[in-house]
């Protein structure tokens, strides 16, 4: 019977070509699919925050109390701090013809975590869009020395398609896009790095779980994992701790602090005083279409008259120093 089939079909054009192409395609499909089998090859460890070539981001600028003083003091007057890869220059931003922010100037210190605070509609997301280059300013400029592929953005309600058939590990591996693009194959060190990232975020046991079955906190961890994999040098987070349990908040804060210590510039939208006091090095407050630089201490003092720890309390934007109408 096989002979009959062979007689019938071997002469027809296209079959050989077609099957060759199919083999190529299949290999290419499975190359991305069989990550977990490759991960186990070879014991050599790769440090978490370096890429395969061993390149590290530049070291952090002055941090701690001195760094905060510099950032708070100089930035407050709109002066340019030397170690800054992200500067705003008299920015005017609009959404659909309505000006949202005006005269926003200043610079974000390398390796510092800046909290972006303000009421809903104050323009936090608009400013983030402008920094990511998604929204062209009406006036002024965003000067960013970080290459586009090293900027990462964790949007608020994520535009992530949760029905998409993809596992957590596969999501984290897409963070290799800057170095790999669409074509280059992944190799051992990358799988091991993905493993380390997942272990760091406490989601190792979820590696092969489909994205659709994750909880809000697990999803947030996985997304931060992608930015770790991406070795982001500028990271913008829009309310990363919303709808997330306390354990996850601890892990996420820890990882963010580590990233900042490695020199990553981090801008995070916050609504919670306690998180602000624990995470932020400086504060950019938005209200009434204007922006004002401040320090976490000043904000806390304004709210409670002291810098001691407080339980979760909302930040009252109209109470912000210098922003009262």
């Amino acid at each position: 019977m096989a002979a009959i089939i062979g007689d019938h079909f071997h002469a027809e054009s296209g079959v050989a070509f077609q099957s060759t192409c199919y083999v190529i395609t299949f290999l290419s499909f499975t190359r991305d699919a069989s990550w977990h089998t490759v991960t186990t090859i070879g014991p050599r460890a790769v440090p978490l925050f370096t890429d395969v070539a061993g390149r590290r981001p530049p070291p952090a600028a002055g941090r701690g109390a001195a760094g905060r003083a510099v950032a708070g003091g100089l930035l407050g007057r709109g002066l340019v701090v030397l170690m800054s890869r992200l500067r705003l220059n008299d920015l005017q931003l609009a959404q659909g013809g309505r000006t949202v922010l005006e005269h926003v100037s200043g610079s974000f210190e390398d390796g510092a975590i800046t909290a972006l605070i303000g009421a809903n509609g104050a323009g936090k997301s608009t400013l983030i869009q402008a920094i990511m280059g998604e929204l062209a300013p009406i006036k002024g400029r965003v000067e960013c020395d970080v290459p586009k592929e090293r900027r990462a953005w964790l949007p608020q309600q994520l535009a992530l398609d949760l029905t998409f058939p993809m596992s957590v590990e596969e999501l984290i591996m897409t963070g290799t896009w800057p170095s790999h693009g669409a074509l280059k194959g992944y190799c051992g060190p990358h799988y091991r790095q993905a493993r380390k990232v997942m272990a760091r975020l406490g989601i190792s046991q979820l590696a092969h779980r489909p994205l659709g079955e994750l909880s809000g906190g697990q999803r947030q961890r996985a997304l931060l994992g992608r930015t770790l994999m991406q070795e982001a040098e500028l990271l913008l987070l829009d309310e990363p701790f919303a709808n997330v349990d306390l354990d996850t908040v601890e892990v996420l804060m820890d990882v963010l602090r580590d990233m900042a210590a490695q020199g990553t510039t981090i801008i995070v939208v916050l609504h919670d005083l306690e998180q602000l006091s624990r995470l932020a090095d400086c504060v950019l407050a938005l209200a009434g279409g204007h922006a004002r630089w401040s320090t976490p201490e000043a904000i806390l003092e304004r709210h409670h008259g002291g810098t001691q720890r407080h339980h979760h309390a909302p930040i009252l934007p109209l109470d912000l120093p210098g922003l009262s109408p």
Partner: peptide, 17 residues
């Protein structure tokens, strides 16, 4: 293939790249 997957999942990420 990989570009398609990333674009399906999260177009903002690809645009960011």
């Amino acid at each position: 293939f990989r570009a398609m997957v990333v674009e399906c999942l999260d177009p903002l990420f690809l645009r960011g790249q």
